[in-house]
Design a protein around this nucleic acid. Sequence first.
DNA 1: ATAGCGATCCTCT
DNA 2: GAGGATCGCTATA
Length: 184
Amino acid sequence: MTVAPPSDFYLRDVLSLARDLIGVRLEGRGASGVIVETEAYRADDPASHSFNGLTPRNRSMFGPAGRAYVYRAYGVHLCLNVVGRPGEAVLIRALAPVEGLDLMAKRRSGRLPLCAGPGRLCESLGVSLDDDGTDFATGPLRLCLTEKTTGAVLCGPRIGISRAKELPWRFGLAGAPLSRKIPG
DNA sequence: ATAGCGATCCTCT
DNA sequence: GAGGATCGCTATA
């Protein structure tokens, strides 16, 4: 039995949301994993896709909370976000694989790691651009609070951005398979 | 271990 | 026309 987060789970400060998504299970298309790494992108944040206002690409960031914002990065990979308050979102950067490891490996053509990295986990879960705007309670990708994994949560600077690099808005579960180690 | 680089293409200026 | 919220391969140490 799975329990979706209450609707107000997403309607708080995005830093708090990013921190609390650590340990939550994400399932999609025959595979699942526990979220172990996230990044927060705030409305007043120069690194956020929403910083310059509503555009066709980022419209999901201004839509209802608790939905997906999926975009293509570097013309190659996909990245998956959880939408919070208007203009705010949490990038899912790594999962600890739980179910459907065979399917993940097949989707990844055997390349490792399976889910450490935003592009990798999208490939493992079969995320597509069509998932943009879908609801995490009822859509093809679901978040489950059941048996939330707990542990020490570290934070450090975000990865791969050129602006607001210094802000410690990346969160990771200690000891988990992260995309990159968090110092400290 | 770390660094460099190409892939690939869409979005926004 | 520039520049990515990345990844995987290659080279050098």
